[in-house]
Nucleic acid binder design. Structure first.
Length: 618
RNA sequence: ACCCCGGUAGCUCAGUUGGAUAGAGCACGCGCCUUCUAAGCGCGUGGUCGGCGGUUCGAAUCCGCCCCGGGGUGCCA
């Protein structure tokens, strides 16, 4: 495959693709330059279906009247079989109304495309997505919700775009904190076969507290009198002992002591069970096969430092090893003065694996926005040493997708470190319960499609609805911004929510089921698109591929939500205006059924990009 | 002190990378279920796009200076 460097991925059956080609040729004929025609969907139906915006900018560059230039471009454009009426408007817009026949052909093509018009990926390299990022022996909190569902959603988008995707769960499964927890459990004689995550979580925090010498360190830092320091030394004797013990345990773990390693593995097992459980509930593709945590890289850390030293990029400073940068004061610390490694060292080893070994030309880190500086440093260091290259030497793009915090009603972060009252599990349980309650309540209506379903079925649908509410609220906003977690708003099932989209989907599915027509018969029916609402729906459906491509380019998952909300709204408009099952004649009925079928497929596929399940009935 | 990210309707947020009259949802007011699911649809009220200046045919969007909020800044991750 020989993709030119500036080649642009274009949807195969989007009318905009054809218009782009035709107007690009026209512009070349008139001006001699290969300029972007700036094809845009019209903002208003009275301006036609599309507008060409290039004339204004071109006229500015060349000097001359933009309206005159627009006339020339339009005259030079070969629009046979593509556009009908075209008009020059305003300062130099070219308003284009699509040829109805052409619009039908485009939709027909899309309906037969397994990818909804998304062309095969030009880049054969992998996309690597760092997601979830749980810590061993710690409860998952709402921050992990974002890292998990955003990462999974992006992974799904890239899979839809035909890319090879690696979901990497970079577990915090190594180092002193884990050893501290392990040491304390061993000392307490804990029964490892019966450990729960709650046990681990408590032990983790107790271990943190019992080894803390914060007051003593502070006393030294602020140069308190020797008397005070000595006093604190005595007071912190137990803390020092506990820390000594933890360090010994760490050493045993690092040297591969079979007994300690076995217990450590048990710790991971207990921790990960919650992750897999949460993943199942969230409909997120994260499992054991995605685990590649800090411990995986432990044997590579020495090599990382060595590579930086040998290439002259690292130097010793105050006993530590640092990588300085030309444009800023702050260096990247890759080895502590005591010889230990840091998370930057692990991240550098991971970058190298992800580009060189996993062959990622795009590596996305879905991690809390507060770590922005950290990743800037790591990425710059990786570029300095040339680790931002795939196996075959193509440059890799390293991106930190820093998402905002999830806030409580008080606008303060929902934290669990000390609060312990808002775990991810609590959140998911509540969402599923609320969803099930809503679905069950509506099922009581004898006319409801869900009437008479078993509690298990209602619970399955209700959970899907509750989870959709939470996921849609998260993914449909600007990822970089903080947001207030308000389950009442998310699960309101009215307006711009996940359940609204599911409801639209269920209604379409219901029509199709009641029609009694076979899928094959529907797929073969000729499309009419006579009503304005049908045409508007068709035009929007045809933009699906471009939307997916744009999400791949910008990593802005909110574009999916905006697209789907618009799709659902347009469908509801069509549903309101056009009877399907009771259409005036058989041709119209079949045409509308086919439009329903296409809309349903696109809506379901779009929801799948969020990992949202679209029930047939609700 | 420096760096980063935000500031758009009463509330929660969009805004297709500089395009036509800044859009949704909630809330509020009115209308629509003997008719394919009313978790829906239509109409209405609601704006100094944080402020001031600049760039140009055209700015919420780009540039500069301020104001406010949040986050980060060498041996934790």
């Amino acid at each position: 495959m020989s993709a030119t460097p500036n080649a642009v991925l274009r949807p195969t059956c989007d009318p905009a693709t054809a218009l782009d080609a035709r107007f690009r040729a026209a512009i070349r004929a008139v001006t001699g330059s290969d300029a972007d025609p700036q094809i845009r969907a019209s903002t208003n139906a009275k301006f036609g279906d599309f507008q060409v915006n290039a004339a204004m900018a071109l006229a500015k560059d060349r000097g001359g009247n933009p309206r005159t230039l627009a006339e020339e471009i339009l005259k030079a454009a070969d629009l046979v079989g593509v556009a009908g009426k075209c008009e020059i408007a305003g300062p130099g817009f070219i308003n284009v109304t699509l040829d109805t026949e052409f619009l039908r052909d485009c939709l027909d093509q899309l309906s037969h495309s397994p990818t909804f018009g998304i062309p095969p990926a030009m880049d054969q390299h992998a996309v690597v997505i760092d997601l979830c990022g749980v810590n061993v022996a710690k409860q998952m909190h709402v921050g992990h919700l974002r890292a998990t569902i955003i990462g999974d959603s992006l992974a799904r988008v890239f899979e839809r775009l035909g890319r090879k995707v690696w979901r990497e769960n970079h577990l915090g499964d190594w180092g002193l904190p884990i050893a501290m927890t392990l040491a304390r459990l061993i000392r307490e004689g804990a029964d490892f076969s019966r450990l729960t995550l709650d046990d681990l979580n408590h032990t983790y925090r107790s271990a943190q507290v019992e080894t803390s010498t914060a007051d003593l360190d502070a006393a030294r830092e602020f140069h308190c009198g020797p008397h005070r320091v000595a006093e604190l030394e005595v007071q912190y004797q137990p803390a020092r002992a506990a820390m000594e013990n933890a360090k010994k345990t760490l050493l045993r773990l690092q040297s591969g002591d079979p007994e300690v390693v076995r217990l450590w593995e048990r710790l991971i097992e207990v921790t990960m069970e919650q992750v897999y459980q949460a993943a199942r509930t969230l409909n997120v593709k994260v499992g054991p096969e995605n685990n590649r945590g800090e411990s995986f890289f432990r044997d590579r850390l020495g090599g990382v430092v060595e590579a930086f030293v040998q290439s002259g990029l690292a130097k010793s400073d105050k006993g530590a090893m640092i990588v300085p940068f030309a444009d800023r004061e702050r260096p990247l610390l890759i080895q502590k003065s005591d010889g230990g490694f840091l998370y930057a060292t692990t991240d550098l080893a991971a970058v190298r694996l992800r580009t060189h070994e996993l062959n990622g030309s795009l590596v996305v880190y879905v991690v809390d926005a507060r770590q922005r500086d950290h990743f800037k440093d790591v990425f710059d260091a990786a570029r300095l040493i040339g680790w931002n290259k795939t196996a075959d030497g193509q440059e890799s793009t390293l991106v930190h997708l820093g998402f905002g915090a999830v806030l409580g009603a008080d606008k303060k972060p929902l934290k669990t470190r000390s609060g312990e009252n808002f775990t991810l599990k609590d959140l998911l349980d509540e969402a599923c319960e609320r969803g099930t309650a809503e679905v069950t309540r509506r099922a009581a209506d004898p006319n409801a499609p869900t009437h008479g379903m078993s509690p298990a079925e209602l619970s399955r649908i209700g959970s899907a609805v509750g989870i959709a509410a939470v996921k849609y609220a998260d993914l449909s906003g600007d990822l970089t911004k903080d947001y207030v977690f308000d389950l009442d708003r998310m699960i309101a099932f009215e307006g711009d929510t996940g359940p609204y989209l599911q409801y639209a989907h269920a209604r379409i599915a219901s029509i199709l089921a009641k029609s009694g027509e076979s899928a094959a018969a529907i797929a073969a029916a000729p499309l009419m698109l006579a009503d304005p609402t049908e045409k508007a729906l068709a035009l929007h459906i045809l933009r699906y591929a471009q939307m997916a491509i744009d999400v791949g380019r910008t990593l802005e998952t909110n574009r999916v939500g905006a697209y789907l909300a618009q799709l659902a709204t347009l469908f509801n408009g069509f549903y309101q205006a056009c009877p399907v099952l009771k259409a005036d004649d058989a041709t119209a009925r079949m045409s509308r059924l086919r439009l329903c079928s296409i809309a349903r497929a696109v809506l379901a596929d779009g929801l799948s990009l969020y990992g949202i399940i679209a029930p047939e009935r609700m």
